[in-house]
């Protein structure tokens, strides 16, 4: 493929879309935040630790982090049927797993921390925007966290490893033997800010092992930048 072509929207390979973060957007929540990658925008609200009902779901050894991921019906071009579906419950699950590693849940036995993630506008990488918003909301809810969590999607489009895939890139197709096949690879990553451990890695598409290594390195580099934006958003609170 062409060597130094920039991407369709003029970004560099390791450049994300314009990121925006704001903390404390929902007054009645214990913690809340908005995070956006360009047109992808996620709102996260955190409540708790609070009483966990029904009681049979309680864990006497450690607290539970419950994440709910949902897309608003107006977030996509074609109206999405409201309510959770198979995809949403999968993302809810991986989000909780990505975030609970940093929270010392053993301090909250029998109780629950609820984290509601709502996608206001979807343009690919919504689960990453959701995790970034949720990490901010958890921090702003005063919940102890060993470190912050930042997420980004890295993919392989037409032979190039690129960060923060947009919807157009995700739908990239090539024609082979008269058939159109989806050829984009999308890997959402969630990376801890300090130890740079990976708490979420999903793979949609195909990738070679050596390319995956490159993708991980790029994700770590980009997540450092995202972490700076998260920190800035949290520190802004004092001025208000």
């Amino acid at each position: 493929m062409a060597e130094k072509y920039k991407r369709a929207d003029g970004r560099d390979y390791d450049e994300t879309r314009k990121m925006e973060a704001k903390v404390g957007v929902v007054k009645r929540a214990d913690g809340s935040a908005i995070f956006s990658f360009g047109k992808s925008q996620a709102l996260a609200c955190v409540y708790g630790p609070r009483q966990f009902h029904p009681q049979h779901l309680q864990n006497p050894e450690k607290g539970v982090l419950r994440c709910y991921y949902d897309m608003t019906s107006f977030s996509v071009p074609e109206r999405k049927r409201p309510g959770p579906n198979r995809r949403a419950s999968e993302i809810s699950f991986v989000t909780s797993r990505a975030l609970e590693t940093v929270i010392p849940l053993e301090n909250y036995p029998n109780s629950v921390i609820d984290c509601y993630i709502l996608i206001l506008q979807a343009d690919a990488s919504t689960r990453c925007a959701g995790i970034n918003a949720a990490a901010l909301a958890l921090a702003s809810a005063g919940i102890p966290m060993k470190e912050m969590v930042s997420a980004v999607s890295v993919g392989k489009i037409g032979g190039a490893i690129v960060a923060d895939i947009s919807k157009d890139e995700e739908d990239y197709e090539i024609v082979k033997d008269g058939k159109t096949i989806k050829s984009a690879t999308d890997i959402p990553f969630a990376i801890l800010s300090r130890s740079e451990k990976i708490s979420l890695l999903q793979l949609d598409g195909r990738i070679k092992p050596e390319d995956l290594k490159e993708a991980i390195a790029m994700a770590k580099k980009v997540c450092r930048k995202i972490n700076e934006i998260q920190k800035k958003a949290l520190k802004k609170i004092k001025e208000e």
Partner: peptide
């Protein structure tokens, strides 16, 4: 020494602690 919470940092002689700015009652 690492922060484990979001809040105001207070150094009192040798003791470092963080005063939370928001969140539920513990």
């Amino acid at each position: 020494i690492l922060a484990q919470k979001f809040g105001l940092l207070e150094k009192n002689n040798k003791l470092v602690k963080i005063i939370p700015l928001s969140g539920a009652y513990v």
